[in-house]
Design a protein around this nucleic acid. Structure first.
Lengths: 177, 177
DNA sequence: GAAGGGATACTCGGATACGCTATGTCCGAGTCGGACAGG
DNA sequence: CCTGTCCGACTCGGACATAGCGTATCCGAGTATCCCTTC
């Protein structure tokens, strides 16, 4: 178990209900940080985990998912590590969420309950289920909002965090890691 | 196990990832049907489960959640059953979803990762996390869309389903159940 | 016909079970870069 | 100086463990309706 965190990051046993995984937050912060650092040399998983105090092995697993989605690149060997695969302005938040939620087909999955049982409506199957339509509309609004923002937007959101990050990262690199 | 359904409704072992529970679909269909039936006498859980071919005991549990949320009313005793607690036009889809997802505080839960580890930003805590803001905006769009539709809208979506439902339900009531 | 009592048909809430997911850890295999030795 | 070898740092992918949730079932207790008996 990761030191100092017995029951997930929150310190208390969280009760996730219809919620995105924590790794979405991790992945987005990693993308933003990699964008800020942007100094050609990739960042190792050890430093990334140290930077945010996250479980190294599991973070690696999630970043691998981002690499499979073409969002990050990983270079093996010594001096290897992780970097953005594209300029931050061309990576949307939606992409990161979808990659980390492993596909994320639909928040609401219509199982055509209306066709089941004695209330079945066999003659109207051509028309889409009204419930499903409403759900889909809502989800589209959600996706559109997420797709409208990129990593670059997040980076620009707190300008002097960028410089502080670069400074602190250099300090960390020189001291121990 | 419910007959004919060994592994959830879909017939195959579904892989829910960041998804709403099936009971949301059940609950919405039940609300719409209760709205269509609307003949003063409440509908028993047995008929409701038979109507959609859903597991009776578990459906009951979910409808109890809707009752706690003030969306349905349940009357005990013989001739008891379930009915809408309010006119369908005053029950939003959002309410039903929230009740069945048991609170549904937030799709994305910011754990303030930015404060953790060596990259911590103690001086800027006052400003909200940009990632969290984007997520919240997207989720608000989703909620707004769900809150903009009521059970009455769903009922009106397929007009002659209403009559067919009433007819079939009467037939079901007279035959066996 | 009215009152009382039991059967029936429901609901409520708790206890239990199971499969799957998210989270977390560990390990072997592969790969890159640098150090180091031998010519 | 050049080349070959070795080692360390790093990634990849799989196996495994754990806790919590959604789904599902069952049971005891309560309650309202109906019917049947009794007066």
């Amino acid at each position: 178990m990761h030191p100092g965190r017995m029951r997930t990051l929150t310190g208390m046993c969280i009760v996730p209900v219809m919620r995105m995984g924590e790794s979405v937050e991790w992945g987005l912060h990693c993308c933003v940080t990699l964008g800020w650092l942007d100094d050609e040399t990739p960042v190792s998983i050890r430093r990334l985990a140290l930077w945010f105090d996250l479980p190294q092995e599991y973070l690696k697993k999630r970043l691998q998912a981002l690499a499979r989605a073409g969002i990050l690149t990983s270079s093996p060997g010594a001096r290897g590590g992780w970097a953005l695969a594209r300029p931050p302005g061309r990576i949307t938040v939606m992409e990161v969420v979808a990659a980390l939620e492993d596909g994320l087909d639909a928040l609401f999955c219509c199982t055509e309950v209306r066709q089941r049982g004695m209330g079945g409506a066999p003659s109207e199957f051509a028309k889409p289920c009204g419930i499903s339509s409403v759900m889909r509309r809502a989800e589209t609004a959600w996706r559109r909002e997420l797709a409208a923002h990129t990593i670059a937007d997040l980076m620009a959101g707190s300008p002097h965090s960028a410089e502080r990050t670069r400074r602190n990262y250099q300090r960390m690199s020189s001291t121990n890691a």
